[in-house]
Design a protein around this nucleic acid. Structure first.
Lengths: 339, 339
DNA sequence: CTGTTAGCGCTTTCAG
DNA sequence: CTGAAAGCGCTAACAG
């Protein structure tokens, strides 16, 4: 394999070849305006010709910046996180950052891994999408040696910057929609209680309903496809099954839909299903899931931008994005005589 | 935010606190056996107490290793790549590597970006899943300043290490299966001709068919859901439509299935569809796609391992994994009178 | 506008 | 087993 055997090419080599001093090479290659245009051109040309690339570690050692940031998600198997990673990655790259992937599951709970990498100077900051409400998280992230921006999920008491959707409002929208359709026996398959996402959606939903969802119609599960399937099966096995289900997110809703089909329950004729997020799959004609859309692209862009700002010292902000109901084919009026 | 204001903590600080010399701290923290057990314990304790973390850049500058590697995929929107990234990431992490994400689309064609990062010492190697057959790729990757391992897709003439599935064999299996079911009017929606994956699957398929697929029943499209939909619509609009379609991968097959449903064509009664890869979605009861499975987990593990080996100087290898037919619900005998 | 001089915080000889 | 000295390849003052 044509890998070079020799020593690494350094700025000193370029300096020698171009007949200037080493710092001038450094300046020229970074576009320092103090270097004469002629000199700069010459240096760039020789660097190009010799195939020189500055050694990132040497630079980092001085600047104390790595130009890399972490993206923390819990589960790439979940399409929602995939889309988020994709969007974050793209926007971060546009801002000149490399993205290092962290998996909450393997990378140690509570972001320990990320914080360690900040301390080593490997990353300049991180955007985390896995915040869970527990006693340590806020304190931990607040004491992190580099900025952390929360996206999608927030944390009570967190002041370090976050961009989230109006989950409360979204829950309310879903409830109003289902109520207007004529549903009365409405079930919920909510997400984990230790995520603000799940609790806020639930709160918004119940606030509009004007009462709590009966315990028998209430499920609280992890944000996974299989959990959605299982919870839906339980609900449909009830003596008086619901005519509609509001799900904590789309993956869960898709799981519920999948199970309804497996049990030959017609959607939306016999059962309405509403999700949350509007992931790509939701629009596939195999699903046509009615859902509450959160503007993931915009949120990712804003989070990336905010992290960039925080890294250069700007103040943290908390920004909330509006959501919108996307009517597709999984929700309709309840079967007659059932409401 | 409780970020420290002071100077960075260095190994010299730990040395002072522990009453030893700075190099001894360095040695102890790396587990150098020459350090006395007592001394090592003392050093570890003070480092822990003070919250010291070695500066990665300083280390890299000397060792010329970053312990980070690149993962190059083209499109995280494609579930297949997502699963691959997830698996690679996990195995790489187990080997002590961090994963930096690259997107072929934004990161410059032909892996230019990755090679630049190798030259800067930012990554020690890369596993690339986006190899396309063109005049430059092999030369480029061969001349890269750090090891490249190809996964999923291979390149003719590439000697740098690759782990792929038996795509030819898989195409043959699919053809044999469809033939035995009784199909005669078989269409193919293949992938891009500049990927070995697509061409090999197609070759294997045609070899068993004993003849070329008629041009009218042949489509060659990008590996996307929408492309699968569109191609399927075209095929079904034909005067004499096919009774079966072999798709270049699962995403395309799912697209085809989606379109068949939209056009109210019963699958598998009126149309059989066979995919390739066996992505997670294929097993969902909404799809139950019959497909040729390539062992992605094993392949990712092997690729990660191979990259690790290449980085420490081992010879490249080419490993091919067997595939297997997964019979689910999208393939059956053709409608009577149609074969 | 450019060169000289100092380090950044580690790892690695080389002594002892 | 441990310390002293050197230096990785850059960037950042500071002169000139």
């Amino acid at each position: 394999v044509g890998r070079e055997s020799g020593r690494r090419l350094t700025s000193r080599d370029i300096a020698r070849a171009a007949g200037v001093s080493q710092p001038t090479v450094s300046r020229a290659l970074r576009g320092d305006p103090r270097v004469a245009t002629e000199t700069a051109k010459l240096i760039e040309a020789t660097a190009e010709r010799l195939g020189y690339r500055p050694h990132a570690a040497a630079r980092s050692l001085i600047t104390n910046r790595s130009d890399a940031v972490g993206i923390v998600v819990s589960d790439l198997g979940n399409p929602f996180y995939t889309e988020l990673v994709d969007a974050l990655h793209e926007h971060l790259e546009q801002l000149g950052f490399r993205a290092i992937l962290f998996n909450e599951a393997t990378g140690g709970a509570g972001g320990a891994e990320v914080i360690a990498m900040m301390a080593s100077g490997i990353i300049d900051g991180a955007v985390v999408a896995t915040a869970t409400v527990d006693s340590e998280s806020v304190a931990r992230f607040s004491a992190a040696p580099a900025p952390v921006v929360l996206v999608v999920r927030d944390l009570p008491g967190w002041e370090g910057g976050s961009v989230v959707a109006d989950n409360r409002g979204g829950g309310a929208i879903a409830a109003r929609f289902l109520l207007e359709l004529g549903h009365r026996e409405i079930a919920t398959i909510g997400g984990p209680a230790n995520t603000t996402t799940a609790t806020q959606r639930d709160e918004g939903f119940r606030a509009v309903l004007g009462r709590d969802v009966q315990d028998r119609l209430r499920r609280e599960v992890p944000f996974t496809f299989v959990a959605g399937r299982d919870a839906c099966a339980e609900l449909l096995r009830l003596q008086r099954p619901p005519t509609a289900i509001f799900c904590g997110n789309d993956v869960v809703a898709l799981g519920a839909l999948d199970m309804a089909r497996e049990l030959a329950i017609a959607v939306p004729e016999e059962l309405s299903i509403v999700g949350f997020d509007d992931i790509g799959l939701a629009a596939w004609s195999s699903f046509r899931l009615t859902t509450v859309r959160q503007p993931l692209q915009e949120m990712a862009a804003r989070a990336a931008q905010m992290l960039g700002e925080r890294i250069v010292g700007d103040e943290p902000q908390r920004v909330v994005y509006p959501v919108e109901l996307i009517r597709r084919a999984t929700a309709a009026a309840p079967p007659s005589g059932r409401h």
